[in-house]
Amino acid sequence: MKGFRLIHSVALIAGLLFLYVPIGILILYSFNASRLVTVWGGFSTQWYASLLSNQALKDAALLSLGVAMASATIATVLGTLAALALERARPGRAKLLFGGLIAAPMVMPEVITGLSLLLLFVALNVERGAITVTLAHATLTLCFVTMIVQARLATLDRSLEEAAQDLGASPWRVTLTITLPLALPGIIAGWLLAFTLSLDDLVIASFATGPGATTLPMRIYSAVRLGVSPEINAISTLLIAGVAALVVTASLILKREKLIA
């Protein structure tokens, strides 16, 4: 309030407009009766209806959801373990090295991660498809989960764990009854992030998949290369709505948790 001047509100509004207008236009034209994306021909939900009859798109969506759930779950388990390790380890060379290794996939260009995984899968002579994409996505998203869970663990009062131990809980039980429940908001957020990153990924999936398995972003990408179409707007709108609902719910949960903690 004090110090919140006109210039600040201008910056805020301009910034948010920049972020949201393109998405708004995209959503708007998904309800366009005209096939021409730039000409408004009246309100219609026909493109949503036509999505339903597009079997290839539906298959791709199901595949992507399955891959996203599986890879997010693997990444959450491994990422949480890594976060616990980083939080517990004494400072030193080993911890620094491990932290660096965990963070590396995050800064590695996607094209390189994708290429290298493909080489691995070819060398191992495994059939590429949903499973290889899941493995690839778990590798990519693990570090994001670690980052979020570790941030949460860092805010935990160390004396809570000591108190539990003092009250007779073995280290294993302390982790199970105190550390993990308190880190849960971070773990949930980590899972969600891994899930959406997997759902979003085009590059790594393109490398890691085989002829039989096409993910939703791959389908959208090949459609986009052919040009703009209201059907893509419709599927995009559905994706945006789904993710937005997920994120808003999650942030409400986190907020409630925060009130308690």
Partner: peptide, 20 residues
Amino acid sequence: VPAHQRPTNLMFQSYALFPH
């Protein structure tokens, strides 16, 4: 003897009450 097996109990300065 690890802390969880000692017949001592500590009242923490921050109280360390489990928030959950």
